[in-house]
Design a protein around this nucleic acid. Structure first.
Lengths: 197, 197
DNA sequence: CGCCGAGTTGAACTGAATCAAGAAACGTGG
DNA sequence: CCACGTTTCTTGATTCAGTTCAACTCGGCG
């Protein structure tokens, strides 16, 4: 539950001129949300990008049967936005909700673009971020295509041990694409198996 | 099975100076692969980006049980690369195979970066491409989390009617994350249902 | 002609979902 | 600080979507 300022995020990854930075920061805003608040509702237009400085967000959809499906969790240092809204001006399919009291730094798409023009280094960095994100999503797809409930869970606790402790179990199940009852059983099975060894 | 040159792809999306373009194109190369050829083997390092000008590629993994899982198909106008290799110098988890006789335009990562520096317009365009890709992957994840075999198939034929006709059915099943036999049954069920109406 | 990969079909099986009930943990207000 | 309602987690019984295995068909190709 550390805190991670956006300015820190920038300066620790690229070299930014002090002046450019402060000008950039002044054009964007910080906002606080309480646990349970929604940053975006499905159906809304969402034209900003959120950088989580403190707390935890969750982006999820609700299907026709009323079931929730977690697209991603976003703890400190993560970026969240809705590309459907951002690049196609369509209403978002996803809700974004604060799972803890959360502080976000809000970035405007246009300002990002301006920053890219002014700082080629930023453009490269941003590119790497996007590519890294794609990599993650591809790995997740691969996992969903190939792995059992247990394998998915094991991968999750290896990749996000911190998140595991901060969200209810049924949300993890929803992220993994399995029923909460099933996850409970998987955990039980793992526990007894480890005990026997 | 039209053809789509990379230069066309660029000029129809951004304004490029004639000189810059031809210089850029001369620094990269075109390559032809026959049906069945591999562009990349899992375990290889893969530091280039492929733009498909003609033909069809398939990127897939093989799990421990020897099962294949299609990460993506790439027909004309699509970009394929392995981010794991490209940005982390890790051996690729995925094979890239030509499903038809295929011509690709091969882009070097460094050249892309240089192009971004020189043409801010290109940086913006590239950004949009990446964001769009992320959007697609997110939608696919959402589908894998929430939809039945039948729903996935229906979505596929709506989104990629062209690809459906160009690849064997069992590969579509592998893309959808279902067994080929199951896809066969889904199709049968859909056919009889449409017939009754 | 005969082989081989792709697709279909049937029957048995299974991992995970669903439904239902109870236990534990949690937060809120008195 | 306790009491009460709400949410989360567990456990059991049952069901079901999709897998697996095996046999058979069909069409293309050497």
């Amino acid at each position: 539950m550390q805190e991670y300022r956006f300015s820190e995020f920038l300066t620790s990854n690229i070299e930014v001129d002090e002046k450019v930075l402060s000008q950039f920061l002044s054009q964007n805003q910080r906002k606080t949300f309480n646990k349970g608040d929604f940053l975006v509702f499905a159906g809304d237009l969402c034209e900003s990008i959120f950088f989580v400085e403190k707390g935890l967000l969750r982006q999820y959809s609700i299907d026709e049967k009323g079931k929730e499906h977690v697209l991603q969790f976003a703890p400190e240092g993560w970026l969240v936005n809705d590309r459907e809204s951002l690049y196609y001006n369509k209403p978002s399919k996803y809700n974004i909700e604060a799972l803890e009291n959360t502080e976000v730094f809000i970035l405007d798409k246009k300002i990002i673009e301006k920053l890219e023009e002014e700082l080629p280094e930023f453009a490269t960095f941003n590119n790497e971020l996007l590519n890294n994100h794609i990599r993650h999503l591809q790995n997740r797809i691969n996992l969903l295509l190939s792995a059992t409930a247990e394998e998915r869970y094991l991968t999750f606790i290896k990749m996000y041990p911190d998140i595991l402790l901060r969200v209810p179990q049924w949300m993890v199940a929803s992220y993994l694409g399995i029923a909460p009852e099933s996850l409970s059983r998987v955990r039980k099975e793992l526990a007894t198996r480890n005990f026997k060894k």
